[in-house]
Design a protein around this nucleic acid. Structure first.
Lengths: 133, 133
DNA sequence: AAATATATTAGTGTAATACTAACTCAAGGT
DNA sequence: ACCTTGAGTTAGTATTACACTAATATATTT
């Protein structure tokens, strides 16, 4: 599944917030993405057409497929963080950089990286590499 | 200096070819970029407006500024290759992935990475990290 | 000079990203 | 009952990156 950068951001916010127990609302997502609601709707339309989310009354949840992609992007993000951190980049910067590039990496490459990094369970911030939703 | 992905590709091809002794022609660049000449011209117009190249009779050379950016992108590319290679990714894939992301990294982060990688002089292919034009 | 190759210009099209303006609809307050 | 507010949505516009075709200009080569 190919994602654009902003689709990636949007999907990640949705996944992160679902961990809090409640689905995100359009308004919340818009604030997090720092865009106006119509822009968010465009993104959600795109994610919906890709079968990654479903919507009801302004609430957004991930489909099974969306959860899988969220998992993959998150794993990618955190493995990249671990790699950068291993070469002395501060946590904050690891995260910033990882957010720019995580959605580009093919999953099988991330798996090989992970294995050669010793299959880390946590990212430098202490978040699980394998996020279960 | 911010580059788009394709501007990056174009600049790198120009820099690589200048090492061969002759500046690139539009046609050569178009073939390498796998686009039609008008698309290349657009890219060259953009690079020229950013002060990175100058043109004459269809030939393209890098300005001093262009050489600097070429150097930085190349260094970035090769440091990323070294990092990925250190975690067991095959050379070819290191290069592929690095090409997708090298132009995004800030130079000072690359310098810190380089230092923590032991200031490598060569990339996994044996090309110099610090390319003098 | 004619043919060929190369360079360029003008115009078009798509995708990603973002916006404003206007409309709908539901919930609350008075 | 009416009005306001907040949220969601639709429609339309704009910009940037990227790519194309068609047509024109220029240069080289035979």
């Amino acid at each position: 599944m190919e994602l654009t950068h902003r689709e990636r951001d949007c999907l990640v916010f949705i996944g992160n917030d679902i961990k809090g127990g409640f689905p995100d609302r359009l308004i919340d997502l818009s604030k997090k993405l720092k865009v106006k609601p119509p822009t968010t709707i465009q993104l959600l339309d795109k994610l919906e057409s890709k079968g990654l989310i479903s919507r009801k009354g302004g609430m957004v949840i991930l489909t099974d497929n969306g959860k899988k992609i969220y998992h993959d992007v998150t794993e990618s993000h955190r493995i990249i963080e671990v790699m950068l951190y291993s070469y002395g980049i501060p946590k904050g910067e690891c995260c910033e950089v990882a957010s720019e590039i995580d959605y580009v990496f093919k999953h099988d490459l991330i798996e090989r990286l992970s294995s050669n990094l010793g299959n880390p369970k946590l990212c430098p911030h202490g978040n699980p590499v394998n996020e279960e939703l």
